[in-house]
């Protein structure tokens, strides 16, 4: 399976990544090579195999009691944000 520059641009859009035309050409080449490597998977017979999402069989995701465990630290957390005002994260205008 080979990808074109156009394919890569479509994938980059889905992944919300701005890439240049030059990068798109380079990625078309390297992603095609990766997909070629991945084609080896077609050799295995998996007709009766169940997919495995997790390495430890029988492990279930725990639930915790619905109790407040965290304290309000939004000022500390927002020190890492690019733009905040009055406790809100600022982004470009979405609705005109």
């Amino acid at each position: 399976m080979s990808l074109t520059r156009k394919d890569v641009e479509a994938i980059a859009h889905l992944a919300r990544l701005a890439i240049t035309e030059e990068e798109a050409s380079l990625y078309a080449d390297s992603l095609s090579r990766i997909l070629h490597l991945v084609e080896q998977l077609n050799a295995a017979d998996v007709s009766t195999t169940e997919p495995m999402a997790h390495p430890l069989a029988g492990l279930v995701q725990r639930l915790r009691a619905d109790e407040v465990t965290a304290t309000d630290q939004h000022e500390k957390f927002q020190l890492n944000a690019g733009k905040v005002s009055s406790g809100l994260y600022l982004v470009p205008k979405v609705i005109e």
Binding site: I11, A18, K93
Partner: peptide, 23 residues
């Protein structure tokens, strides 16, 4: 706009191998 904030922050903030794996 918001789309530009997302795509450019990610495009400029991630290096080439990380972008390759995300794609």
């Amino acid at each position: 706009d918001l789309q530009d904030l997302y795509t450019r922050s990610r495009g400029e903030g991630f290096g080439s191998e990380v972008k390759r794996r995300i794609m």
